[in-house]
Amino acid sequence: MATLKEFEDALREHGMNMALALLERLRERDRATRTVKPARRLTGQKMTPELARAILDLHATTGMTQQEIAFKVGVNQGRVNEVIKRGKWLTDDPQAPEAVARDKAKARMRGEPKPKKAAPKERKAPPRRTNQGQLALGDL
């Protein structure tokens, strides 16, 4: 199967200027009718317990897919899956793993330095084993 560019080159080779003119007119018509459609979602909504409950409600009461639910509420499909399968974001607990991860990501975006970790505790060296020698078959 030839590409449009190859087709155009073949028309040029054979001197088919009328066909080239027609092709150009079709391109112009296509450009004139083409519109720039807005993105499906400009910015994702912040995941909240209320939004998570709305996702669960849509999942339970409709036959919508996760992708359709995500588009309707303004989040990505992965977030919908986390709510449905793992019950994430259903509490307002700031210490929940997803809330902690969100706050860390926001801090990285703001360029805040990472919190310093506590100094590691000294580890005790394991006791040294002394060479006990080899056992011979006759020793047993």
Rank of each mutant, 00 (worst) to 15 (best):
M1I: 05
A2D: 03
A2P: 08
A2S: 09
T3F: 03
T3K: 10
L4N: 08
L4Q: 10
K5V: 14
F7G: 06
F7P: 00
D9P: 03
D9L: 13
L11Q: 14
L11N: 08
L11T: 07
L11V: 06
E13R: 10
M16Q: 13
N17S: 11
N17T: 14
M18P: 05
L20H: 00
A21G: 02
L22Y: 14
L22R: 11
L22H: 11
R25P: 00
L26D: 12
E28Y: 09
E28N: 13
D30G: 11
D30H: 14
R31E: 13
R31H: 09
T35I: 09
V36R: 14
A39Q: 14
R40S: 15
R41I: 12
L42A: 11
T43L: 09
G44C: 06
Q45E: 09
E50T: 15
L51C: 11
I55Y: 01
I55N: 02
I55D: 03
D57T: 01
H59Y: 06
A60G: 05
A60I: 01
T62N: 08
T62E: 09
M64F: 12
Q66T: 10
Q66M: 13
Q67N: 14
E68K: 13
I69E: 02
A70H: 02
A70K: 06
F71P: 00
F71E: 08
G74F: 00
G74P: 03
V75T: 03
V75P: 03
V75I: 06
V75S: 02
N76A: 12
Q77T: 15
G78V: 11
G78Q: 15
G78A: 14
R79A: 13
V80D: 07
V80A: 03
N81G: 12
N81E: 13
E82Q: 15
E82S: 15
V83E: 02
V83T: 03
G87P: 07
T91Q: 02
T91K: 01
D92Y: 01
D92E: 09
D92L: 01
D92V: 00
D93C: 02
D93R: 00
P94L: 04
P94F: 01
A99F: 00
A99W: 02
V100N: 03
A101R: 08
A101M: 01
R102K: 08
D103Q: 07
D103V: 03
K104L: 07
K104V: 04
K104D: 05
A105K: 06
K106Q: 11
A107S: 12
R108L: 07
M109A: 15
K114M: 10
P115E: 13
K117H: 04
K117Q: 08
A118V: 07
A119K: 14
A119G: 04
P120H: 04
P120D: 01
K121Y: 05
K121D: 02
P127L: 05
P127T: 04
P127R: 13
P127H: 06
R128A: 14
T130P: 02
T130K: 09
N131L: 05
Q132I: 05
Q134V: 14
L135V: 15
L135I: 09
A136I: 05
A136T: 12
L137C: 07
L137K: 12
L137F: 13
L137S: 10
D139R: 01
